[in-house]
Amino acid sequence: MKWEDIKVSRSNTYFLFEGEQVFDRQFIEVLKFHSPGIAPVKDDTGSYHIDVMGNQLYFDRYTRTFGFYCNRAAVVQNKNWFHITEKGEKAYSDSYQWVGNYQENLCTVRDFNNRYFHINQNGSKNYSEYYVYAGDYKDGIACVKLSSGFYRHIDSYGAFLNEKEFLDLGIFHKNFATAKDQQGWHHIDRTGKAIYENRYAVVEPFYNGFALVTTHDDQKSVINEKGELILKV
Results as ranks from 00 to 15, higher is better:
Gly184Thr: 11
Val144Gly: 06
Val22Gly: 04
Val22Pro: 05
Asp43Ala: 03
Tyr58Ser: 03
Asp24Cys: 01
Gly192Ser: 01
Phe15Met: 11
Phe112Trp: 14
Lys145Ile: 10
Asn80Gly: 02
Ile50Gln: 06
Glu197Met: 12
Ser147Val: 09
Gly37Ala: 11
Ile141Tyr: 04
Glu29Met: 09
Asn12Pro: 01
Ile230Leu: 07
Ser47Phe: 00
His153Gly: 03
Lys79Tyr: 13
Gly19Thr: 14
Phe68Lys: 12
Gly135Ala: 01
Ala74Glu: 09
Asp218Tyr: 15
Val233Trp: 08
Gly135Trp: 02
Glu89Ile: 05
Leu31Asp: 15
Phe68Gly: 13
Glu86Asp: 07
Ala134Ile: 05
Thr108Lys: 00
Gln121Ser: 10
Thr65Lys: 07
Glu165Arg: 03
Ser93Cys: 00
Asn78Gly: 11
Glu225Ala: 06
Thr63Gly: 08
Val222Phe: 08
Asp5Pro: 01
His153Pro: 03
Val22Cys: 04
Trp185Pro: 10
Ile230Ser: 00
Lys180Gly: 03
Thr108Ile: 00
Glu197Gln: 15
His187Arg: 02
Asn105Cys: 08
Phe68Ile: 07
Pro205Asp: 10
Gly149Pro: 07
Asn120Met: 04
Ser124Trp: 06
Tyr48Asn: 03
His118Phe: 06
Val8Phe: 11
Leu161Glu: 04
Ile188Phe: 14
Pro36Ala: 07
Gln219Ala: 06
Arg72His: 11
Tyr58Trp: 04
Arg115Tyr: 06
Met53Asn: 15
His187Tyr: 00
Ile50Glu: 07
Gln182Trp: 04
Tyr207Ala: 05
Gln77Tyr: 08
Arg25Phe: 05
Gln56Ile: 04
Asn55Thr: 08
Arg190Met: 14
Val202Pro: 04
Glu86Gln: 13
Val30Glu: 04
Ser47Met: 04
Gly227Leu: 08
Phe59Val: 05
Val132Ser: 09
Lys87His: 13
Glu225Arg: 13
Gly135Val: 03
Gln121Arg: 09
Ser35Pro: 02
Phe27Ala: 03
Ala134Leu: 04
Thr65Glu: 09
Asn105Pro: 00
Asp60His: 11
Ala73Met: 05
Leu167Met: 13
Gly192Trp: 07
Val233Thr: 11
Asp94Arg: 12
Glu197Asn: 12
Asn71Tyr: 14
Tyr133Thr: 04
Gly192Cys: 09
Ser47Glu: 09
Arg25Asp: 03
Asn12Met: 15
Leu212Asp: 08
Glu89Leu: 07
Val8Leu: 14
Thr63Pro: 03
